[in-house]
Amino acid sequence: MSIFHPTGNWFRSPTGAERMWIGMALFWCLVMSITMPWWHFQGKQNAPSETYKVEPADFIQRVSQFVEAHQVGEVNNVPIVEPPPGGDAYLLGQMWRWYPVLKLKKDQTYRIHVSSADLQHGLSILPQNINIHVIPGYDYVMTITPTTTGEFSLICNEFCGIGHHMMTGRIIVE
């Protein structure tokens, strides 16, 4: 009777099916809690953690330098930039675009620095469905190796003002 107070000494160890279920549930919890660190060491997809503090103005400047040094083309007035394989690339989220377009090579690893010029943004690479959170003041380094080729859309999936649903970008993988 969950609405009445239990009388006497109600403490009792679980037995029977209840005990079995608690054991099974605990085992499953242990399986899940071991899977995460195991994947951290063995898996190829892990949440990035490398971060640096950065002033938005400084980050914008680094992005401009990066674009100047490695621009290879233009699409709809947005520069296409090809970073050196294995090198650093920059991606700026601002109201409301991802800047610039990045051109990468398949199976090459890049360190992509992502940050925001203004509000918080959500970087979403589609149709891969890779998503990370972007916060102004934080230089978030995503070490990424594209394993497929084609044109990939970037969208913003954190609300960033009235133009949020027009904030896109692109990554080209050859």
Partner: peptide
Amino acid sequence: GTYGVPRRTYDSDFSGATLETGFD
């Protein structure tokens, strides 16, 4: 969401964006 459709977004097709995109 498994196709990557974002939450908190008015237009899932991002129409009017400089660089076009869209969903399956």
